[in-house]
């Protein structure tokens, strides 16, 4: 059983057991336009909630992706450096950024549900 949660900064978290998969939302990829490059952290890196976890670039913009949770990176999406376009075509599936452990289970509770996030995106126009 997996659960999907979102941040106001347009990252998503998909929790499978005690492994969290992180990426950016469909709304975020549309705002960015064509993604041309993704810089990922090293496996083993310690991430802190709200601090930079990755960088995603379009032609004319560079965006920091913040860690939605605190934990340790256990895998990164090796396909992204060569085929960044999958962030556009499949942000929630093939376009995931990294997998991490979850240091504080409580951090999931402060994130938005899918319904809340969709309502939030509506307000952004």
């Amino acid at each position: 059983m997996s659960s999907l949660r979102f941040t106001k900064e347009h990252e998503y978290v998909r929790l499978d057991g005690d492994i969290a998969t992180i990426g950016i939302t469909d709304y975020a990829q549309k705002q960015l336009g064509d993604v041309v490059f993704v810089e990922l952290p090293d496996v083993g890196a310690k991430l802190e909630r709200g601090k930079q976890a990755a960088i995603v670039e379009s032609v004319k913009a560079a965006s920091e992706v913040y860690a939605p949770l605190t934990g340790v990176v256990i895998a990164v999406n090796e396909a992204l450096p060569d085929t960044p376009a999958i962030v556009n075509s499949s942000p929630l599936a093939g376009g995931w950024f990294l997998k991490m452990t979850l240091a504080h289970a409580g951090e999931m509770d402060v994130l938005m549900s899918e319904a809340d996030y969709n309502a939030y995106v509506e307000t952004l126009g």
């Binding site: 900064e9 347009h10 950016i24 975020a28 705002q31 379009s58 913009a61 965006s63 992706v65």
Partner: peptide, 11 residues
């Protein structure tokens, strides 16, 4: 996510 710069897509 925090963006610097503008969005781009080939029109």
């Amino acid at each position: 996510m925090n963006s610097e710069g503008g969005p781009t897509a080939l029109s």
